[in-house]
Design a protein around this nucleic acid. Sequence first.
DNA 1: CCTACTACGCTTTTT
DNA 2: GCGTAGTAGG
Length: 740
Amino acid sequence: MHDLELLNKEQQEAVLHTEGPLLILAGAGSGKTRVLTYRIAHLIEECEVYPWNILAITFTNKAAGEMRERVDRIVGQGAESIWVSTFHSTCVRILHRHIDRLGYDQKFTIYDTEDQKTVLKDVCRRLQIDTKLYKERTLLNVISHAKNEYISPVEYQSSVRGDFRQEKMAEVYLEYQKELKKNNALDFDDLLVKTVELFESCPDVLERYQDRFRYIMVDEYQDTNTVQFKLVSILAGKYQNLCVVGDDDQSIYRFRGANIENILNFEKVFPNTRVIKLEQNYRSTQNILDAANGVIQNNISRKEKALWTDNERGEPVVFKLLQSAYEEAEYVTGDIRKKLNSGAAYRDFAVLYRTNYQSRTFEEKFLMANIPYKIVGGVNFYSRKEIKDILAYLKTIDNGKDDLAIHRIINVPKRGIGAVTINKVQAFAESREISFFEALESVGEIPGIGKALLKIQPFVNLIHEWRLRLGELTLEKLINEILERTGYAGDLEAEGTDEAQARLDNIGELISKAVTYEKEAEHPVLGEFLEEVALVADIDSVADSDDRVLLMTLHSAKGLEFPYVYLAGMEDGIFPSYMSIAADDPLEEIEEERRLCYVGITRAMKELTMTAARIRMIRGENHYNNVSRFVREVPKELLGNRTYVPDAPKAQEPPRSSAYARAKEAFRTKTFDPKQFKVVKADRLDYGVGDRVSHIKFGEGTVLDVTEGGRDYEVKVEFDRAGVKKMFASFAKLKKIESL
DNA sequence: CCTACTACGCTTTTT
DNA sequence: GCGTAGTAGG
């Protein structure tokens, strides 16, 4: 066996403990991926376990790919028959074979968030639900949450009897689910739910997979939700060889249903669990680690642990407060340049932020400074309009039941099939209880269809033709034919704009992805390609080989490491986000934000820089935020002297330049109207986001937001008794009672 | 049936 | 500030 000597005592223990439940509490940078790969190698080579009896589950395809690669390197033979994949792709693979047992067609489609919204809108219209009263977003959250907790529409309905609002939402959930089934579609959450359903209702199928996956390993276990837990525990039910690796301090997906109880209660659910803690960090300097510990120890609900390292103390952590987001980006760019000059490579840097929109300023600066970068996240490649259009064609050719896909392309490019015609077809389909596409196929029988027949017929014929020729056409040829014969490419070319060209380029990229797929797959089929494409996250496309600075959200950065890390936008209201400050349970939400901060800090190997901006433009308005409480939680002695942290934020005298800069900023972004200056605008406020203030009428409250209005500061306060109020600072005469 | 304009609402984080 | 949804006019 390969040198177990390379592992420390705890790591070795984890590798050697192969039988029975095992919980590995692995701190950041403690070498858990290494343990997992060695463990797999050990199982195969020393314990005579067949490779196909091993299932390793990760969260992203990228992580799966990396693990596979590392396993390949140390396992001589049979590595390819180990299942290393994400929860979602594991489920897709299983469902693909057995979903007919649940009454679905095996050629199901996967709906992304946009598709979900379309269905939901439709459902709301049919149920005559006012989408102003029931926000689309809320409804989707409710549905997703129910699914994550493995609550069916019927169960949900009976659990909320008596609450009118929730009853309504239950109705939506029920109807939404019906619609999905009708379209032979599953959303992301369904992939997990349906797999568990399958196992619960078909013991024979379950046993087959239990026997197949005798050894199961789950990475990033702290981010599993209830269904995922159910899935894993049901699969491991027979042999009990379940090894999970996680770190409660890095649990950052509560909003998505991740259930921290899964890790905290693991030992209760699996008696005889062996618990191993990996506490030695191999990644970061002592300073970075101390900063991380300083922050995370402010969380109350966590398992106590002590990360330590043999690494050197390293450079001090840097905090830099800048005037604006613009200057923030400029500072980071300059700092990167400096380090590049002393030998660092582009790929050594990552800029991490809380929200995707923060990437824009950095992008601009990097472009100007000629620094190659890659933005991870934001709009997923596969959610771009042109890509979704082409995919909708492919879905229609592959699965005639997906009404959504057909609706999307029936008139794209323009064929003169408008809303009136579509409604007629829809009504006809509903009256006959057939799918939309089937209705199109018998367009001749639709009453009052008129001339539209001549427009629909050729479209249907085209789809039919492609279906027939599916066997002989490669994906590349098929997509090219779609582009040519529908006029899709022609339209874009005719447009001649840069944007149209970018769209064409994107489609080109889709084609090359299709080509790669066909080259790599054993038996390439359209349906499988579509499945694969549906489950791609943006982070998956990050190759270690390209030498670029990476820009991404803190969430996307989980599991990665970089020599130089910048945490940008360290401001209360940005990070922690105002949503968490204003939440019903701010304590818990802020603890989640703090874990996110911990994840961010621990990505850094050599140097960590945190930055904040005094003034930040959000949605065209200037915001004045306090320096993030997380910065203040970093022990002072760790911060270098280039650093400036205001002690009591907003209480002290502002630097002279700031009022001027602010005026300039306001002038630059707002139309200057002298009449507006009737109210005397306070030069600056002595309170900021997160501070406690009192109001003569409303009593005490917490400041949620401070916005630059034209003539005054607009302050949003959540009062303990009076609720949330927006008011002008000069009238409100708020008094600060305590700062954070 | 399509296009152009206006109003509104929205932003956490993602498989 | 931006994108989308809804509406009016061609």
